[in-house]
Write a protein that binds this DNA or RNA. Structure first.
Length: 582
RNA sequence: GGACCCGUAGCUCAGCUGGAUAGAGCGUUGCCCUCCGAAGGCAAAGGUCGCGCGUUCGAAUCGCGCCGGGUCCGCCA
């Protein structure tokens, strides 16, 4: 018993088309698809096989469509197959064949839609915010998109590792260490003034937020007066580590509030200490991709202090990048890019040939060079890096944007957003947009209990379904129910939507687009609400019919299947199904 | 100057990797809902898919060139 009916029908189409044209090249077959029809008048499914095969077969697409239709029609499960339009074949399934999927859903439960084991590891890295403070709203979209994408790819049958890269090696965490020390002096009651202290801090007084006050206190509690008059060299490493550990705790709490969890946290510092950077660069060095050179200044926008400098460069242009990229600064120390190369080399050494990074839009200019580096590292082997960019989110309230700039002092933390609308709304709404498009997050809509709040609408559908199931009480042998009475247009529309779920999982995972799941659930909820509403106009369509146990059982099976698919989809999005609306 | 993302209904956005008559919600307009499943329901109006070439049986979708918005551009992370 197969789950993905579209994949099954595609196999049938392929079998028949290869009987008609045994010589059809594999790359042509690969383009053949079986898709849901937009219009119910076109049947349940349509295939483009005749259109795709027309040119290589040297025949008119309509003729092929006619022949293919004839070949498909006798198949068990197909009620009708007919040529249409420029050369489509529209397929109408036997209702009985369609309905047979309901027990499949009931038996599979929330696992319905789970793809077959692809026996392939995929690493999904996201958030990776610097451990210098709590997460802010800007991190939120990447966290949600990355998490849902990882769930989605796992659902499609891949072995997914969710990874967070801790940038605990650069100048920023040193700045954090200095501020921790400053807060420590304060905690001990010493007259350390921010202005005076800032002057003595290399890189200025970043991360001065109040959230570091308790860190200073904890540091004081741990080390007492030990570091009061000590030189920086004595305390900096300790303060940095202490600060990073505390910030990671903070970040993990923020992530937990958003229900985002990782399989692994990788430390940049640990990688550097273990010699990973030298190891990564050596791979490129051995491939002859590292050289000394001088870069041209960017045209049209030459920095004031520009002067030509010789640097160690990676030949990124050999792999599709626009210019070669520095891996070492002019003083010989490594660039951040060098560490990133090392980090991806490390992932590859851990057996990942498929990697996905979720980044903010401000890193868009970084994509080509990182992909170039991965290709270079792979050498003759195959490895691939996909980058999902998340564009900016504008938070709106009462029709006006909520200011979020740090400078304006209204720096909105992720926690504020979650407290305002709850993790479910944050997650679902963030996923109602394609990640590479800018979006507006409307705080008013996010808490509204109407159809324009998608998370409410979907959860309400689930709650209604559960309410029916509670009212129905224990119904035994649901998976064996006679469902042949399900014939109303609204019922069949709902079933057609339900059987699309495995296909959505597959296509959305392949496209790395979790938002398709959110849209699917929204549509599914719409179909279910429509059926519910039909029962208001026509009592005969209500789910529970005291006088008609057979029909009732069939409908309860359908409602149960609907609840299962909604739960299955919400699980991918990381949104909780609710039993009742309160 | 260059790279990347976006441009679809009044607004916010989908459009399933080139398919059939371009969709949804909000908003607008009209009708329905005193109770029995209404924190609502049904329906209508609303589009030169930014513009122009090109590729082909076919383009919102692919290519090129413009226009507009955004992100970014040697040693920052």
């Amino acid at each position: 018993m197969t789950e993905n009916l579209f994949a099954e029908l595609r196999r049938w189409v392929l079998e028949e088309i290869l009987i008609l044209f045994p010589e059809l090249p594999a790359e042509v077959c690969a383009k053949i698809e079986v898709t849901p029809t937009r219009d119910a008048a076109h049947g349940d499914m349509a295939t483009n096989a005749a259109l795709v095969a027309a040119k290589p077969a040297g025949k008119n697409p309509r003729d092929i469509a006619a022949a293919l239709s004839q070949a498909l029609t006798p198949r068990t499960g197909i009620a009708k197959a007919e040529p249409a339009g420029p050369g489509f074949v529209n397929i109408t399934l036997d209702a009985e064949f369609l309905l047979r999927q309901i027990p499949v859903m009931l038996t599979a439960g929330e696992a319905y839609g789970q793809g077959a084991d692809k026996a392939e590891k995929i690493n999904v890295e996201y958030v990776s915010a610097n451990p210098t403070g709590p997460l802010h709203v800007g991190h939120c979209r990447g966290a949600v998109v990355g998490d849902a994408l990882a769930n989605l790819i796992a659902k499609a049958g891949y072995h997914v590792t969710k990874e967070y890269y801790i940038n605990d090696a650069g100048a920023q965490v040193l700045a954090l260490g200095r501020v921790v020390y400053f807060r420590y002096l304060q905690a001990l009651g010493l007259p350390a003034k921010a202005e005076a202290y800032a002057g003595s801090v290399a890189g200025g007084m970043q991360y001065g937020g109040a959230y570091l006050e308790p860190v200073g206190e904890a540091f004081a509690a741990e080390y007492g007066g030990k570091f009061i008059d000590a030189p920086e060299a004595d305390w900096l490493a300790t303060a940095r580590q202490f600060g990073v550990a505390k910030m990671l705790e903070l970040i993990r709490e923020d992530l937990a509030a958003l229900r985002v969890y990782f399989d692994i946290f990788s430390s940049e510092d640990a990688l550097v200490q273990a010699g990973g950077v030298a190891r990564g660069l050596a791979i490129l060095e051995n491939a002859g991709l590292i050289y000394q050179g001088v870069l041209e200044p960017p045209k049209g926008k030459t920095p004031e202090d520009w002067e030509p400098r010789e640097q160690t460069l990676f030949r990124a242009t050999a792999f599709g990048d626009d210019v070669d990229r520095p891996v070492q600064k002019s003083d010989g120390s490594n660039t951040y890019f060098a560490n990133d190369i090392a980090y991806h080399a490390d992932k590859m050494a851990r057996g990942f040939t498929q990697m996905i990074d979720v980044w903010g839009a401000d890193h868009g200019g970084y994509v080509k060079r990182m992909q170039a580096a991965v290709k270079a590292l792979a050498g003759n082997t195959s490895a691939n890096l996909d980058v999902v960019l998340c564009q900016i989110v504008r938070v709106m309230k009462d029709g006006a944007p909520v200011r979020m700039s740090k400078r304006a002092g209204t720096f909105v933390e992720l926690r504020d957003l979650i407290d305002e609308v709850g993790p479910d709304a944050v997650r679902f709404i963030m996923l109602m947009r394609k990640s590479d498009a800018q979006m507006e997050f409307d705080l008013n809509a996010a808490v509204a209990q109407t159809r324009d709040n998608p998370v409410f609408y979907v959860q309400y559908a689930h709650a209604r379904a559960r309410s029916v199931l509670r009212a129905a009480g224990e119904v035994s042998g649901l998976a064996d129910a006679d469902v042949s009475s399900l014939q109303a247009p609204e019922e069949l529309a709902l079933i057609r939507k339900l059987i699309a779920w495995p296909r959505i999982v597959e296509t959305a995972a392949q496209a790395r687009e979790p938002h398709r799941v959110a849209f699917f659930l929204y549509e599914l909820a719409g179909d279910f609400h429509a059926l519910w509403n039909a029962g208001r106009d026509d009592a005969a369509l209500r789910f529970l019919q005291a006088e008609r146990p057979v029909e009732t059982k069939a409908r309860v099976a359908l409602v149960s299947a609907t609840a299962i698919v909604i739960r299955s989809g919400l699980a991918v999005l990381g949104v909780q199904p609710v039993e009742e609306m309160r």
